[in-house]
């Protein structure tokens, strides 16, 4: 029924609708055969810079091993009606770093995201989180292991208040068991702790004043903030953000980027999907480039972005607009400020 659903907020709608079109569009626009690009990238790895990040054990190339991977994936494929949406041979995500997953529309980023977070089942493949295999593990269980995700189209709980949504995020709640739920003394004290933590996070995300409003009343940017804050209530180790900056009012982009950087500062690992390179350039420590379901390049942002094929094929030519400057954590030359 959802194929014809006029509901524009359906989670799968945009990617599903635009995937086949936009790939053609990308080819048309750039006039480049995708296969050529892939080959170029594979044949010409750049050797100089990878040591600078200290994340990888070798030069930046698709599937390069990481020094300390938090997530390792192998041979992941997923097809939709004969069309291979994801075909990832090997991927490692470095711990305590911000990794950006980029690529044009329809490259399979969100699909890979759904697979890694258990929201979709791959046709083949194995992947492990902290050495623990996640294949076949339902989404809620991988979330409990410390791997939390957000959604491209924010999923706010419209008729829950902001504070209620936050409290819902906390894990290990005694009162969520049906038997203990009916005896409030069993969970009241824990509830107070959770509320304190939620209020703290709301303050940090500048949503404190909204705490008693229904989530439905928030703006698009505030929803993104709430979703991220709610995800943090689970006290995750690994945060997957699906296009955290999409559709956000520019005034809020700064705040969002700040929060992403904070996650790393607090010891978390971040993987985020973005198809807009502006956002990626300075906050990412590592960039993974996908096209047509495959990983075609990997490396530190500077290195990947210098690859002319990547720039031409996937990133467009708007790298001069520097987001790093907006957040104040980078100077105009792109050097990280202390």
């Amino acid at each position: 029924m959802s194929s014809s659903s006029p509901d524009p907020t359906a989670s799968d709608a945009p990617e599903a609708a635009d995937a086949p079109l936009s790939q053609d569009a990308a080819q048309e626009l750039e006039g480049i055969d995708e296969d050529t690009v892939v080959e170029t990238l594979e044949v010409e790895p750049t050797h100089e810079i990878h040591h600078a990040t200290g994340l990888a054990t070798g030069p930046g190339a698709p599937g390069v091993a990481k020094v300390d991977p938090i997530l390792v994936a192998d041979h992941i494929t997923r097809s939709f009606g004969g069309n291979k949406a994801v075909d990832v041979d090997h991927l490692e995500i470095p711990r305590n770093a911000i990794t950006a997953l980029i690529g044009p529309n329809g490259a399979g980023k969100t699909t890979l995201f759904n697979l890694l977070s258990g929201f979709d089942k791959p046709d083949t493949g194995e992947w492990s989180f902290n050495g623990r295999s996640l294949a076949g593990i339902p989404a809620f269980k991988s979330a409990r292991l410390g791997q939390v995700r957000t959604f491209q189209l924010t999923k706010v709980l419209a008729r829950l208040t902001v504070l209620e949504s936050m409290k819902l995020g906390a894990n290990g709640q005694r009162g969520e068991s049906i038997w203990q739920a009916v005896v409030p003394p069993l969970w009241k004290s824990q509830e107070r702790e959770i509320e304190e933590r939620a209020l703290g996070l709301l303050q940090k995300f500048k949503l404190f004043e909204k705490k008693d409003d229904y989530s439905a009343s928030l703006s698009g940017g505030q929803r993104k903030l709430l979703e991220m804050a709610r995800a943090l209530m689970t006290q995750p180790e690994f945060v997957l953000l699906d296009e955290p900056m999409a559709g956000v009012n520019p005034a809020l982009v700064q705040s969002l980027l700040d929060h992403v950087l904070d996650l790393k500062a607090e010891g978390m690992t971040v993987l985020f999907v973005e198809h807009d390179m502006h956002m990626v350039r300075h906050i990412a420590d590592w960039v993974v480039v996908m096209a047509e379901g495959r990983i075609v390049a990997e490396g530190p942002p500077g290195e990947v972005m210098k690859d002319p094929a990547v720039i031409d094929a996937y990133l467009g030519s708007h790298l001069d607009e520097d987001i790093g400057v907006i957040t104040g954590r980078y100077d105009e030359e792109g050097n990280r400020l202390p």
């Binding site: 959802s2 194929s3 799968d12 599903a16 009606g81 949406a85 699909t111 979709d120």
Partner: peptide, 16 residues
Amino acid sequence: LLFRPQGLLGRRERVG
């Protein structure tokens, strides 16, 4: 609905 919710001739929806 249990085993093939898209029916005999329907297409499986793409997720994500």
